[in-house]
Amino acid sequence: MKTFKTQLAFDGKRLILRNFSYIFFSLLMPAGFYLLFTKVMVSGSSTQMKPFYVSYMDSMIVYSVLISALFGIAAILKRDRDQGLVTFLSLSAHGTFPYYLSVAFWMLMMSLFSVAVMGSLAVGINGVSLHFDQWLSLFGVVLIGQLPIMLIGIGLSYIRRYETLSLASNLITFPMAIVSGLWWPINMLPKWLQSIGELMPTYFVNQLLNQLTSRAKVDLTNLLGIVAWFVVTGLLVIVLSKHEQRKGVALGEA
């Protein structure tokens, strides 16, 4: 237990408290977008805007999770492997289990922080009011919905070169955010692009959040979509991890 606690403290400091990239790109930037699109670039009365304040909060939560996974987690896992932290821990008596458990814990925390920050802004600035059960189910959906997105981030971490990783993160994150309707309504996009967007994991999570926060009927096909993405990305990560082990990457020169 002492090992796990130390690992948690170690990762909490480097992944959250001292990680300016995470704080800026995953929290401050979506928060900035939320304020920009709900307070500055607005048309309509406060009553008319209420549903938008809630739905855009949902979108920015999903966007924040997406950024954390595809930029934050992918790069952190890659660096930990390349710089020998994973090898160092694998040589210890406890192995890498406490490390992976701790990283998974902080991944969940990152998502909850996203909900906390966006939720606080929505409530504090825009007067959004949700019942306790809605907040609770929102947390639950974010925790489940983040899984396939995090797995995409873990999969990206196996890319060999940092430049390619950065390019891949950009090429996936922003198109995915746009086509799944996180930045502006999906019905503003061409039909063919909407068809693609409606298959994205971010779309499924966003839809579920919208349905819960607007008390609309929950469409379980969104949950099925999340499960399908979870299975596919999970298998992909297993294959990549096995491939990496076979190659014996990061073990240095002969």
């Binding site: 170690f10 400091k13 480097r14 992944l15 408290l17 001292r18 990680n19 660096r79 930990d80 710089q83 020998g84 932290l85 160092f88 240095g252």
Partner: peptide, 8 residues
């Protein structure tokens, strides 16, 4: 190689 872990 040394462990140059960011934020640590």
């Amino acid at each position: 190689g040394d462990m140059v872990i960011a934020g640590t």
